[in-house]
């Protein structure tokens, strides 16, 4: 069997990262985490994740949408499945996320089980 798939969790709230880790703990993923955009980009270059769960509003210059845009624009990282996760749930926000190339968009609060479902969908 090939190496385990890697999943990167990016959120500035520790509790939310914990929630995502516990949601994914019985899956085949090897889990990694980052707490802001800069750290996330550095992790991507280092671990080459297959899936990223990405929060939109984070402290710092760059937000999740920008991270998504950059990764999707780069041929080396464009294949990574990106799931945006945000407290911003207005149609406009979801449209911006789609334009940035996100594969799925989840609005907080979300159901962990449907998030799991969506990862399975985006995996295959």
């Amino acid at each position: 069997m090939a190496d385990k798939q890697k999943l990167l969790i990016v959120d500035d709230h520790e509790t939310l990262r914990e929630l995502l880790k516990m949601t994914l703990e019985f899956t085949e993923f090897e889990l990694f985490e980052a707490s802001d955009a800069t750290e996330a980009l550095a992790m991507v270059a280092e671990i080459h994740p297959d899936v990223i769960i990405l929060d939109i509003m984070m402290p710092g210059e760059m937000d999740g949408v920008e991270v998504c845009r950059r990764l999707k624009a780069n041929p080396k990282t464009a294949h990574i499945k990106i799931i945006l996760l945000s407290a911003k749930g207005q149609t406009e926000d979801i449209r911006v996320g789609g334009e940035a190339g996100a594969d799925a968009y989840f609005v907080k609060p979300f159901s962990p089980m449907s998030l799991l479902e969506s990862i399975k969908v985006t995996r295959y």
Binding site: L16, V107, P109, S111
Partner: peptide, 12 residues
Amino acid sequence: RTPLASVMGFSE
């Protein structure tokens, strides 16, 4: 929404 996400997520 953020604390609510924890309440909803962890209880599920």
